[in-house]
């Protein structure tokens, strides 16, 4: 039987998809029955959703491309 720690490691390291079919089923069954691991899985998804929001604060201003093209063309 797969342990909580093994499930947590597979979830956080993105290694689940490279596991055998049987291993993936073990993880799925474990998640269906273990509320703590299911909570971890849910939180990892929420972190992913929150991380996508980080894009907004890091966007360039509207003139970035034109400035770059100007400079790069000068260098050619």
């Amino acid at each position: 039987m797969i342990s909580c720690k093994q499930v947590a490691e597979l979830l956080t390291s993105d290694q689940l998809q490279s596991q055998s079919w049987w291993r993936r089923m073990e993880v799925r069954l474990h998640l269906a029955m273990c509320t703590l691991c299911a909570r971890l899985a849910r939180q990892l998804n929420q972190i992913r959703a929150g991380a996508r929001g980080l894009r907004e604060g890091n966007e360039a201003d509207g003139g970035l491309e034109e400035r770059l093209i100007r400079r790069l063309t000068r260098m050619q």
Binding site: S3, K5, L40, Q43, G50, L54
Partner: peptide, 25 residues
């Protein structure tokens, strides 16, 4: 034996917050 002794904290309330992105940042 690989069982949780310090399980993930129940942060549902926190995660529902729009501040999550800022917290991650």
């Amino acid at each position: 034996t690989g069982n949780w002794v310090r399980p993930p904290a129940d942060l549902e309330r926190l995660f529902l917050s729009r501040e999550l992105g800022e917290l991650i940042r």
